[in-house]
Simulated assay, not measured.
Amino acid sequence: MRAHCLLSVLIALGSAAPALSQVPTGLPAPAPGGVDTLRARKHVYTLFKPVPTALMRPLSTDRPDATESAYSVDAGHFQIETDLLRLGRSRLDEQTAAEELGLNHANLKMGLTHNVDLQVVVESYTIQTEGVGETSTRRAGFGDVTVRLKRNLWGNDGGPTGFALMPFVKLPTGRSCGNGAWEGGIVTPFSVQLPHDFTLGTQLQATLNRDSEVKEHYLELAPTLTVGHDLYKTLGGFVELATAWDTRNPGWTATLNGGPTLRLGDNLQLDTGINLALTKDTQTTYFLGLSFRR
């Protein structure tokens, strides 16, 4: 996919919709019970007129699971979600192993409107090793940058379900670590609030990846399903099945993901976990991350 086509999609989806639950100072009191009235009142907040702290929705992150959140960052507020440390290992054959160490792979988010946020995913530093012993090769450096635009269509500030569209484009900024190609696609995260503090999330991600050997793009489809649960007020956890299928080599790859999350206040969250390979030639990954909002 050409870069200008992907950027056009990003721009086209950047418009308006939902919002929150208390009454901001200076605005009229809500009419009895109406989410639509609440949306109309919160419509006044923008990138340059931030949502008041008291009205911000609960912290919602795209990490640590592969399933993205259906909810956007409040207008005028900034959020960072980062892999402080991510270590992935896979075995390509009986004599060849691959290892990847990622440091501070960060997703930088900014709320633009009441239902749209802009995200820049930066692979700050990556070390890739392939092979065993003296025959191994090593690459290290700054990686690719991905630009994403999330538009929540409903459920941002209440309701049993939430849904969003998130187109993205990957910029080939990495030299040593990267495939040197423009790539992009769209993600469709959907969330359901279940009884007893359980949540269900699912998505379908469609990506046009680049095969550097044949110099062609190919389609990859990646559905996921995740279940989260709050064990205590500050401690939660998730279990997830993440899969992928591409048109080059029809067949599925899959990982079983899980781990705890620890909330340290309204705007700070720590997490750790594992993505356990279920299929051959799939990477098993261990991670430690942090999310912060202001």
Rank of each mutant, 00 (worst) to 15 (best):
A222K: 09
Q128V: 07
P58Y: 07
W252L: 12
H4M: 00
D93R: 02
R86M: 09
D36Q: 13
P250S: 13
R91E: 13
G88I: 04
Q79Y: 09
D281Q: 14
R294W: 13
T25K: 13
S60W: 00
R175D: 06
P223Y: 14
T199H: 02
L6Y: 02
T272A: 15
F287S: 08
A97H: 10
E216W: 00
A70V: 06
S124D: 02
T46I: 06
R39T: 01
R210T: 00
L204I: 13
P28F: 10
F142Q: 06
E130Q: 13
R148A: 08
E130T: 15
A75S: 10
A3Q: 13
L118A: 15
F292I: 11
P28C: 10
L268H: 07
I11T: 11
F48N: 07
Y71I: 08
P172C: 09
G102L: 09
H43E: 10
Q95W: 05
N115Q: 13
L7D: 02
V35M: 10
A3W: 04
V23S: 09
E183A: 00
A254F: 12
H105L: 12
L108G: 05
N249V: 04
L84S: 05
A254P: 08
L200W: 12
G141T: 10
T253N: 14
T279I: 03
N275K: 15
L268D: 01
L59K: 12
R91V: 04
A31W: 00
F168M: 08
Y71P: 00
G251P: 01
A164L: 05
S72V: 12
W154V: 04
T129Q: 15
T234P: 00
E99R: 14
L38A: 12
A181C: 06
T255R: 14
L171D: 01
G158C: 05
S21W: 01
L278C: 10
L149F: 08
A164P: 01
L270C: 07
D62A: 06
T46C: 05
P50D: 11
K150F: 07
V132N: 12
H105A: 02
G180D: 02
T207G: 07
S136P: 00
N249F: 03
S90W: 02
A244V: 05
I127N: 05
T282R: 15
K49Q: 10
P250V: 05
F48Q: 07
A254W: 12
P28R: 15
A19E: 09
L84R: 08
G236V: 08
L101W: 11
V120H: 01
V169T: 11
R57H: 03
L13N: 13
P52E: 04
L241W: 09
T113P: 02
N179T: 00
P30G: 13
F292Y: 12
A181T: 02
P223K: 14
A254I: 09
Q119K: 03
A244G: 07
L112G: 03
H196W: 11
A70Q: 02
G289L: 09
G14C: 04
L235E: 05
R138D: 00
D65C: 09
V35E: 11
D93Y: 03
L149E: 06
Q193I: 03
G158I: 10
R248L: 15
A277E: 06
K150T: 04
